[in-house]
């Protein structure tokens, strides 16, 4: 099965960034080059992997939802937290799948006999399902970030809560052009000043920053990385042939920022090495 790196938010950003020319590709990897040069074909491994991994994660979410439901040993509070998280993730992956592939099958159970013959659903139906899952998640999740015991408060912003769901819901509504609902949902997050706030631009991406709503701890603790994104996008050497560190922000994206934009001045750095040329 696909590993987390292949379907992680970093990987999604890398693939879609390359494909959408937000990034310049220096990798010699054939499939990454094909992606960059818009010469994808139907057997391409990269496009397959996202699809495969996303549906595997959806299966895991469904397994959690069904397993927790059937359990008699887990108390109600924990059941709510776990079910809410799983519903959120199920919505999350359906969202990216439909944005990348258009019509996709909606999968809401682990029954392989049904899922194996699932047909592609209209984008509208997929979005309806996403909203439905997120609203259900809102109902069962609490207001705070919890720790590993599912109850105690945690300073880590890892386990989704009601506001994480709201923030994502707002985004989904925007894609659905339901601007009123989007505003309502985002307002709920914005108004929660005790948990979320705008902070200095250079501190936004730090661990547990107040501006971040949902952070994911690196899933492979032995890699000595803080985040996969950092390792992949921040260049410390000239761009490499391998997937990590093989891209730079494209001039087109760079020029779309005004010169005073803090996102440009603070979040984007410059690395000069005349010896490399993009592939």
């Amino acid at each position: 099965m696909g590993n987390v790196a292949e379907a992680s938010p970093y990987y999604l950003a890398l693939l879609t960034g390359s494909y959408g020319d937000e990034l310049v590709n220096y990798s010699t990897n054939v499939t990454l080059q094909q992606l960059y040069t818009n010469s994808l074909n139907s057997v391409d491994a990269q496009t397959n992997r996202v699809w495969t991994s996303a549906y595997n994660f959806i299966y895991q979410a469904n397994a959690v939802i069904e397993g927790v439901q059937a359990s008699s040993g887990i108390n109600e509070g924990v059941k709510h937290q776990l079910t809410g998280e799983a519903l959120f993730l199920r919505a999350y992956w359906h969202f990216y799948l439909t944005n990348l592939y258009g019509k996709i099958p909606i999968v809401t159970s682990t029954l392989y006999k049904e899922n194996a013959v699932a047909v592609r659903d209209d984008k509208v139906k997929v979005y309806e399902q996403i909203v439905k899952d997120l609203l259900s998640a809102r109902l069962v999740l609490g207001d705070t970030y919890v720790g590993n015991d599912n109850i105690s408060l945690s300073t880590e912003r890892i386990r989704p809560n009601k506001f994480v769901v709201d923030a994502f819901l707002a985004r989904v509504y925007l894609y659905m052009e339901k601007y009123e609902e989007a505003e309502l949902a985002s307002t709920r997050v914005i108004n929660n000043k005790s948990q979320f706030d705008i902070i200095d631009a250079d501190k936004v991406f730090l661990k547990n920053s107040k501006e971040s709503i949902w952070q994911i701890m690196t899933a492979a603790p032995n890699t000595n990385l803080n985040t996969t994104e950092g390792a992949g996008f921040i260049l410390t050497l000239k761009p490499q042939n391998s997937a990590a560190g093989s891209t730079a922000v494209s001039p087109r994206l760079l020029n779309s920022f005004t010169s005073a934009d803090k996102r440009k001045t603070i979040w984007i750095a410059k690395f000069t090495d005349k010896t490399v040329t993009p592939m």
């Binding site: 699809w51 495969t52 549906y55 899922n115 194996a116």
Partner: peptide, 11 residues
């Protein structure tokens, strides 16, 4: 073999 939509590619 199953479509990976089922979560895994086979059973």
């Amino acid at each position: 073999p199953l479509p990976v939509v089922a979560g895994f590619s086979d059973i």
